[in-house]
Every structure is written in C-alpha cells, then in structure tokens.
C-alpha cells in the first residue's frame, strides 16, 4: 500500500520446515510473530495491540502438528490444537488435568485452533493451560538459531507478555513426562459464567500417592494471582505426608491464599482472588487425589 507513512505491509510466511521457520524468524526485518492457532495474535492485531511486519504460520511444519510419545513422555507439537489434544486418548488418560485445562480455552471454535504453546507464549498470567502444565511438570522445547533447549514451563514467562524466548527462537513442542504411578492432576479455574471468560483465578494440582494413599510428591500452581503463573512449593508441602484429608486441604487453601498476590481489575478484586485461590486449590486437590487413587 502506497501509504504516506511508508509502512511495508504485513508479510505472511508458511514455511514447511522448522529450519526455515527459525531462519525466517532470525533474519526477518521488523517485528515477526509466530502464528499457531492465531486466537491471541489475530485478536491483538484486530484490536490494534499488535502490528507485526511478518507472520510465520507454523501449521505447515508437520512435526509441529503431532502428538507423539516415546519412553520418556509426550511431545505435543506447538501447532496442535486443544481439540486435537482432547481427542488423544492416551494423553487424556495420562494427564487429564492438562487436557481439560486446554479444553477450557475459549469456545468450541477457539479450541479448534488454539494451542497450548500459544497459550504459553502469549504469556498471560491468566492462561488456563499454563498452571496445569506447571503442575504436571511440563517443559517447553525451544528451537532457535543455536539449536534446542528445554525450559520448565514455570520458568518460561518473565512477566505479562514477556518470555525467555530470544530473537530467532520459537517453541517447537511442549513436553510432558510419563505420569508416575498413583499420580493424578487437575486444574480448575473460576469464571463468572460457565464458558467464554478469562480465568479470574486458576489452580493446578498434581499429586503422587504411595500405596497407602499418603502423598509423596505434590506440585501446586496458581494462575491469575501474580504477574506470572506461580509454582508454590509451600502449598505443595502442606500436602506431602498427608492423605489429603480435611486438615491438609485447609492448610493447602490457606497456603494458596497466602501465596496469592493479585491485583484488582475488571475481572475480579484482589480479596476475591486471594480467597478463591484457596477454594479452587482445595477443590482441584480433591480431584487430583481421586485420580491418583484411580477413582475417576
């Protein structure tokens, strides 16, 4: 467009290989953004918050469009949609909390496109799949001009909209470990409606029990109560060594409320988020416990 501002119009690229994608990302001029499901990016473009010069659509890179499993765990390609995750029986059986969290993203329509890698890279503190991934011990597989690296999901975001990705880097896949025996995960969020809202608070819990039902390991994560998703070791410790009975769950709720340091905004007040963080963690822990016990 021959506009007086002289801005070059947006370029769309659809590379077929990871290498091409990384090259484009590393060498393109101006602002370059990865397009996965586009459910954040297109909204940001439409509302004027993002004006990229280049878009790299990763949905033509076949390894990024697959869910695979080796002995060590699952690899969820960064272009895999939430709907495809829900349709993968093995993944659903192993990590129902993660799959359910991904299935909370937006509507049926949004789930047909949205990816958990995009959810992570968008770096919103309220992203639904992120606390679930954190609780499950997921890592992001990052690919860049210098090769690969893996970063724990809880360390991936540095603040709202900020990630550890460097120029030329993208997320290739999300890696989930094989689920240890007697382990269950769950994620719950609070929204004022039943659907189509962004989490006011979210809580992810993953517990491993011994044969007597006593918790030997736990991971507790909280969303929308801090600039990034929190992995809270203190909250996890309230569960370890217990059978997740009422006193333990009360202690968990108290620890989560204490860990929360939210803000007041259009979606909820500070005090509401602090209280509900505890309520949700407690409820999620019960689901995770029952899953670990094989009850559901």
């Amino acid at each position: 467009m021959n506009v007086i501002s002289g801005r070059i119009p947006l370029q769309y690229h659809a590379p077929a290989t990871l290498k091409d994608a990384v090259n484009l990302l590393a060498n393109s001029k101006g602002k370059t953004q990865i397009l996965a499901g586009g459910t954040d990016l297109l909204v940001r473009m439409r509302t004027g918050f993002s004006e990229p010069d280049n878009i790299i659509d990763v949905k033509h890179i076949s390894p990024m469009c697959k869910i695979s499993r080796d002995g060590k765990g699952f690899s969820i390609g960064a272009a895999v949609s939430s709907a495809e995750m829900s349709e993968n029986a093995a993944l659903l059986k192993a990590w129902p909390g993660v799959v359910e969290a991904a299935a909370l993203i937006g509507s049926t329509q949004v789930q047909g496109r949205a990816t958990i890698a995009g959810n992570l890279c968008n770096a919103s503190p309220a992203a639904d799949s992120v606390p679930a991934m954190v609780a499950a011990g997921a890592r992001a597989l990052i690919r860049g001009p210098k090769g690969k690296r893996k970063v724990a999901v809880e360390k991936f975001c540095k603040g709202p909209g900020k990630t550890v990705l460097k120029k030329g880097e993208l997320v290739e896949a999300i890696l989930l470990p094989e689920k240890p025996a007697r382990t269950g995960d769950a994620y719950l969020r609070f929204i004022p409606r039943t659907e189509m809202d962004i989490a006011v608070v979210g809580a992810g819990v993953c517990v491993t029990l011994d044969s007597k039902g006593v918790c030997t390991a736990a991971r507790v994560s909280l969303g929308a109560i801090a600039p990034t998703v929190l992995l809270d070791a203190r909250a996890a410790r309230t569960l370890v060594g217990t059978s997740l009975d009422d006193p333990a769950l009360d202690a968990l709720a108290a620890a989560c409320s204490a860990a929360a340091r939210p803000i007041d905004d259009k979606r909820g007040t500070k005090e509401f988020r602090i209280h509900v963080a505890g309520v949700l963690a407690r409820r999620a822990a019960i689901i995770a416990r029952d899953r670990a016990l094989g009850k559901s």
């Binding site: 409606r193 039943t194 659907e195 189509m196 809202d197």
Partner: peptide, 14 residues
C-alpha cells in the same frame, strides 16, 4: 471492557 469477552452476556451453558 469493550468486548464480549469481558462484557459478559449470558451464554447457552449458563
């Protein structure tokens, strides 16, 4: 909240 995500009209599942 100038959008339907945060101007929350009832959805079918509500």
């Amino acid at each position: 909240n100038p959008g339907f995500l945060d101007y929350r009209i009832p959805v079918a599942s509500d």
